[in-house]
């Protein structure tokens, strides 16, 4: 066990956990931030996507000891008023079916638009390819990202 001082969604948080604990489980079970989802545990499905210093990363295979001073943003902290353009576009296109993967999709999409405000179809496909949606909402995800890009 070891103590880690984390910056999560702009707040200082202290946890005392096994240093190998993936950030996913620290968020979900120690900080009660359950919007970040467990899907595969091996960084293959993207359901656990968070932002680390603004970049999309998979939290399920990222040990808490590797965070250092980097800031963590989760779906709960993506926008203070929960109205990030990507979240709004997701509602506008009524993207979700079961909804389980969507927080991860939104986090990947938000990071994409931060780095590339006007992505092409191909760039969207490349950026989003690591996020599985078992319900098959891929077309709406793509359309929502284009709407969010237009509204940002």
């Amino acid at each position: 066990m070891a103590v880690f001082n984390l910056n999560v969604n702009g707040k200082k948080q202290t946890v005392d956990v096994d240093p190998k604990t993936p950030v996913l489980w620290v968020l979900r079970e120690h900080l009660n931030l359950v919007g970040t989802k467990y899907g595969c545990g091996i960084a293959q499905c993207g359901a656990c996507t968070i932002h680390l210093d603004g970049n999309a990363v998979r939290s399920c295979a990222l040990p808490v000891s590797a965070i250092g001073n980097k800031t963590i943003t989760t779906i709960e902290g993506l926008a203070e008023k929960e109205d990030h353009p990507v979240q709004q576009a997701w509602i506008e296109h009524d993207v979700p079916q079961c909804g389980y993967c969507q927080a991860g999709q939104i986090m990947t999409a938000a990071a994409l638009l931060k780095n590339n405000p006007n992505p092409s179809n191909e760039q969207i496909e490349n950026a989003m390819n690591g996020n599985l949606c078992r319900c098959g909402t891929y077309l709406r995800i793509k359309a929502a990202i284009k709407t969010a890009a237009a509204n940002s």
Partner: peptide, 13 residues
């Protein structure tokens, strides 16, 4: 629209 949409996109339990 999906009645749970707002909760889904904001990561509510």
């Amino acid at each position: 629209k999906n009645v749970d949409g707002p909760k889904i996109v904001t990561g509510k339990p």
